[in-house]
Amino acid sequence: MNPILKTQIKEKTILRIQADQVCVDYNGTVALYDASLKLQSGSICGLVGMNGAGKSTFFKALMGFVRPSRGRIRINGLSVTKAQREQFVAYVPQNEGIDYSFPVSVWDVVMMGRYGSMNIFRIPRESDRRAVIHALERVDLIDLRERPIGALSGGQRKRAFLARAIAQRASVLLLDEPFAGVDVPTEKLMAELFLQFRQEGRTILISTHDLNHVRDFCDFVVLINKTVLAYGETSEVFTSENLNKTFGGIPPNPLSGRRSAKDFPNE
């Protein structure tokens, strides 16, 4: 263990995510440059930017799907590949990114969170089953565990994938547009869950362009447009000047309570 990590554990906070001047380019096209970010354990952080601003590229870099052409990423002090092997990182996908006609039950999906800790043939042990039951109870889906994943509502689907991340026991959670298509009870449950996660020392990074939810849920916010424009506590970073920079002069105004354009597709 490196000495920095050791002292941090003494202070009971760990640097969960550390990105130093990360650059990513796809065949010469720059998607992200000089992106730096530090996130401690027990924080909830919103990653805000327009489509194509580099949110998903940043996620991909954190998950090791793209290699930064410059810069360095550390998760819990380890390289991304090692962190993945330790099951530190969980990705909670957008609802649109999943094939819901796939013949798997809620139980099967949550069990997938345990695969990385199982042996190569993925035979569940008693401890894996207990972890799945525990995760399902926390998201209030234990009674629906036998349901096919496609038979769930949008909010229940989101909870199923959160349960998968819980079962994985990940300390870093990457959530992609978690509030899209989610009902009110699920939103309440997610709010409680996030607070519990924070208490447990997990770090949550939420990629979204829904500014209202960022205000309600996130302690920190990262504004991104090809690079990190501003980063800090939500109340300090959410200024109209910063949002102007992020959204190129046409920001959805969070201060008036108006929701982002995505919630009003007809406008």
Binding site: M112, Y115, R164
Partner: peptide, 21 residues
């Protein structure tokens, strides 16, 4: 032998990759 991994790969390759598979 590999039906679980292959099933996961078909269902959610992103998750498979993110847990180090």
């Amino acid at each position: 032998l590999f039906r679980r991994d292959l099933m996961l790969y078909c269902f959610d390759a992103t998750h498979a990759r993110s847990i180090g598979i």
